[in-house]
């Protein structure tokens, strides 16, 4: 051996061999580092790109999707696109843009069985259970419902109408005499299909669908909601509920829902302390004399 390498007749000595090996390894290693960093940077999904129904969480999705495009082919509405190099979406992975082409929520979800690798979860069979993203009323200043106008387009086009988006009736303090019909999205029902964003009548939609992790807040893990815990256990967990005592004159009680102070004798119309008829007050005393 002794560095001559003649045994193999290739005219490469040990020094050259090790040198070549190191050069190749370094080159490939550098490339790997570059690729790894690029992949971390590239794997953040932009806010406007929504994955097809059943897509695994983004990180797992990028490990599972082999970029074959069969979901794109099997989408009957042709809304799915594959990301291209230079797009913000990872090249070759499927997505749709709600504003221009929302998911039409096919009942048989044809894009899912098309997926050969479970990047779109085959367990999902009910499209209403899919969570592609979450709709958010992003701008209360331009949404015309907040301006006091009747619109409700997002509410009406919602495929899970009345559950995913409800209308909250509020007093219009500006006019003083009208109601506001405020759209409210509920994450327990919204699939993120994007039909509402597509339908929003504004030039730039006031309701938008975002990937769920961008749209949804999350309570601290330690957080317990008192009334839920109370309901679960059947009693207050901290101190027993004491009935609040008001120091009120006799015959008067306080009930907020009953609109505040209630004079008990008022309820009993026959026994008013003061008659509602002013003549009774004026004539009071005459009968006694």
């Amino acid at each position: 051996m002794a560095g001559s390498g003649k045994g193999k007749g290739r005219g490469v000595n040990r020094r050259q061999f090790v040198g070549n090996l190191l050069r190749t390894a370094c080159g490939v290693g550098l490339m790997g580092m570059g690729l790894g960093m690029y992949s971390r940077q590239a794997s953040s999904l932009p806010a406007m790109a929504i994955r097809p129904p059943g897509a695994l969480p983004e990180e797992e999705f990028l490990g599972a999707c082999i970029r074959c495009g069969l979901c794109v082919r099997d989408c009957p509405y042709d809304i799915l696109k594959l990301g291209q190099l230079g797009d913000e979406v990872v090249a070759g992975t499927p997505y749709f843009t709600a504003r221009t082409g929302p998911c039409e929520m096919c009942e048989d979800i044809p894009c899912i069985p098309a997926c050969p690798t479970n990047a779109l979860d085959h367990e999902l069979t009910d499209i209403n259970e899919s969570r592609m993203g979450l709709a958010v009323v992003v701008d209360q200043e331009t949404c015309i419902a907040f301006l006091g106008l009747r619109c409700e387009v997002c509410f009406n086009v919602c495929p899970i109408r009345g559950d995913a988006i409800t209308l909250d009736y509020q007093h219009n303090t500006r006019s003083g005499k009208h109601a506001l019909f405020i759209p409210v999205v509920h994450s327990d029902a919204c699939t993120g299909c994007g039909l509402c964003e597509k339908a929003c009548i504004l030039d730039e939609a006031a309701i938008k669908v975002f990937p769920t992790h961008l749209a949804k807040g999350e309570l601290g893990k330690h957080y317990r909601i008192g009334w839920e815990e109370k309901e679960k256990s059947g009693k207050s967990l901290v101190t027993p509920d004491a009935e609040h005592q008001y120091n009120l004159p006799e015959g008067v009680r306080y009930d907020l829902q009953g609109k505040g102070l209630i004079i008990e004798s008022e309820e009993d119309k026959s026994e008013l302390p003061v008659s509602s008829n002013p003549l009774d007050v004026l004539n009071r005393g005459f009968g006694e004399q």
Partner: peptide, 8 residues
């Protein structure tokens, strides 16, 4: 990485 990096 858990991701199909080469396909990028």
């Amino acid at each position: 990485t858990g991701s199909i990096v080469w396909e990028l």
